[in-house]
Design a protein around this nucleic acid. Sequence first.
DNA 1: TAAAGTAATGTCAGTGACTGACATTTGAGA
DNA 2: TCTCAAATGTCAGTCACTGACATTACTTTA
Lengths: 181, 181
Amino acid sequence: MNSKEKLQAAATKLFMEKGYENTTVQEIASLVGVTERTFFRQFKDKSDVLFDTSNEMGHRVAAFITDHFDVEQKPLKLAVDGFASVFGVFDGERERVLARNQIIQSHSDLQERELLKSQALIGSVTNALSVKFDSELSELAARFAVEIFYMAFTKWIESTEKSFVEQVLAVYEVYEKLCQY
Amino acid sequence: MNSKEKLQAAATKLFMEKGYENTTVQEIASLVGVTERTFFRQFKDKSDVLFDTSNEMGHRVAAFITDHFDVEQKPLKLAVDGFASVFGVFDGERERVLARNQIIQSHSDLQERELLKSQALIGSVTNALSVKFDSELSELAARFAVEIFYMAFTKWIESTEKSFVEQVLAVYEVYEKLCQY
DNA sequence: TAAAGTAATGTCAGTGACTGACATTTGAGA
DNA sequence: TCTCAAATGTCAGTCACTGACATTACTTTA
C-alpha cells in the first residue's frame, strides 16, 4: 500500500467520521504519517482523493461495447449492457459504494466533481459506439446510457430489491416505453 | 444596478481579460468599489458570480410544459419543445452566451458548477412532467431532454448554421432515429 | 560495494479563497 | 429629525494549494 492508497483510505475514514468540511488535509496527511505537501503531490485537490481520475470504468464500458457489436445491434442497448456488466460489481461491495455515495451527497463540491466524471464516461462510450454508428447517434446514445446508468444507480442506492443489473434493465424498459409515445 | 449586478459585470469583464484563475476576488471587488467581504455576501464563492442560482430557466421550462400538455402528448417532445422555446433567446444574445461559455470551458471548477445546474433543471422538468406522466417516465424524459439540450447547445456554439431551436429539433430527430433501432 | 543518479518526501514561506464577529454607514419610513 | 434595519466595512484568522529548494531513500551501474 503506497502513500496514495493510504491517503485515500485515511481520507475516506475521516470524511465518514467527521464530515468532509470538518476534515483538513493536514489531518489526513498526519494520520498516514506524511506531510500536507505529499497529499497535494498525489491529488490535485482535496476532493480528488475520492475520485479515480483514470476513467477506468469508461474504458471498460468502451471495451465491452467493442466486444459485443455482433451480439447487440441497438446502440443504446449495447451501451446500457456495457454499464450493467461493468458496474455489476457494485452488488459485491454495496457497503463501500454506499459509504462513498453518502460522503459525496454531503457536499456539493463533491457532487459537482462526480458529474464531471460523467463527461469522461460519455466521451469513452461515444468513441466506442462511433466505430459502428453515426457520430451524432453515438453521442446521443452515450449520453442517454449514462443517464440511464445514473438513474439506475440512484434506485439501486435507495432500495435493495433488485441487483444493479436488474435496476439498469428496469430503467432501460422505461426508455422503451418512452419511445412508444 | 445594485452591487450584486455590478460585481457580476465586473467579474465577467475581468475573467475575459485576464482569465478566471488570474483574477482575484479582491480585484473584482475593487473594480466595483466594494470590499472582498461584500462579494462573499452576495456570492457563496468565486465561481458563483457566473451562475444564476435561481433556476429561473428550469421554472420557465416547467411552466411551458404545464401550459402545453394538450398540444403535445409525447413527454420528451414536450420537454424538448420547452427547452427550445425558453432558450430560443440565445440567438439574440449570441455574443454574451459565447463569451460566458468560453470562460466556463476554461476552468474545470466552472464546468462542474454548470453541470450541477443541470440537476436542478432535471428536477424542475421531472416535476412538471409528473403531473401527467408516470414518475419514472417523467424523470427519464427530463434527463433525456436536458441531454438533448446540452448536445444542441454544443452544436449551436460550434456553428452558426442553425438557430438554437433548429439545433434542438435536429437533435430530437437523432433521438427518433435512435428509437427505431 | 561505492558512487551516482532518480524518485519520493520534507520544509518553508507565501497567496488567495472564504468565514465569523463586530463596527460603521446608509437609506427609508415614523 | 430620529430610528431602525439592511448593506457594507474592518480585521483577524483558517485552510486549500503552490513554488522553490533541501533531504532522504531507493536503484542502477561501474
